[in-house]
Simulated assay, not measured.
Amino acid sequence: MDLFSRSWSALLAAVADTPDEDFARPSGCAGWLVRDLVCHLVIDAQDVLITLVTPAATAPTVDAVTYWRLVGPPTGDDPLDALIPRLAAAYGDPALLRFHLDDVGSAAGRAAQLADPAALVGTRGEVLTAGDYLSAYVLEWTLHHLDLIARLPAAARPPAETLAAARGSLERIAGTPFPASFTDEDALLVGTGRRTPTDEETAALGPLAVRLPLVLG
């Protein structure tokens, strides 16, 4: 729960500090500008709010790791993916998009702090504890923080503890650790296909290299 708050607060602060002109720069999400990524975060924050007030009465079907599904690379056919750039462009002024994320995002952060970690919630046709749900999102927030700053070298980076937690989650999803020579950031970027590994990194990855990237959905 604490890592959720740290990762989300850091990401909201990074967006708040992003100058208007940088909203038109490419993000680390292929095909999305920074403004598109921020618009996606608004929808993510709404999902958090919805899930935390959607109680479930059955036993958990997933946990913080199995919540994530391995899917194929984006094809551009997903209706929501196609909607995001149009919706982001409709805001016009980046200040409006920044304000909307701060408004909804702050509410999502407060809801997470008030949530009972043991409470069962439902989302995406699955049931899990609120604690596991929020833990799963540490990986989401950390990856998107890296996406946000991919071409903004002066921007604040994700906290070290959330980078380490996100790496641990990705390693559990992969079923094997990344090489110790990889920094947490490198493991996340290479592991999810956000960066192509060097020849040296590919050799260090060994059999894991052929299973990458791990595209999460």
Rank of each mutant, 00 (worst) to 15 (best):
T75A: 14
P60R: 04
S9D: 14
V121G: 03
A204V: 08
L134A: 10
D81F: 13
L216A: 02
R172H: 04
D132N: 05
A16E: 15
P94T: 06
A115E: 02
L11D: 07
V210G: 04
R98K: 06
L52I: 07
M1N: 05
F182N: 09
C39W: 04
G131D: 10
S135D: 13
P79L: 03
S5W: 01
P79G: 01
A204D: 08
A166K: 00
A59M: 07
S135M: 11
L128R: 08
L52N: 08
T129F: 02
T142V: 00
L114P: 08
T198M: 06
S135A: 14
D2T: 14
T142K: 04
I149R: 11
D47V: 12
T142S: 08
L97W: 11
P19Q: 05
A136K: 02
G122D: 08
L87M: 15
V42E: 05
L96E: 14
A14C: 05
D132R: 06
G125T: 09
L188T: 05
T202I: 09
W8H: 15
A30G: 13
V210E: 04
L33E: 10
S27F: 09
H40I: 11
V38A: 06
P179H: 11
L139V: 11
I173S: 08
A112R: 04
L41D: 09
A82F: 13
L97N: 08
G217R: 15
L70N: 03
A13E: 15
P197N: 04
V127G: 05
L170C: 03
D22V: 01
A187H: 01
A16C: 12
D77E: 15
V53Q: 13
L134F: 11
E161S: 07
L52Q: 05
E126L: 14
A118G: 10
P26W: 08
P158T: 00
P85F: 12
T123P: 04
T176S: 14
P197G: 02
R157M: 14
D20L: 13
A160Y: 09
V15S: 03
L189Q: 12
A150V: 11
P197Y: 10
S5Q: 14
L214W: 01
A95E: 14
L143A: 02
L37R: 06
D77Y: 09
F99A: 15
A156T: 14
A154S: 10
T61P: 01
T196S: 13
F178H: 05
A118E: 15
P207T: 11
D132G: 03
G105P: 10
L70V: 15
A13Q: 15
T58N: 10
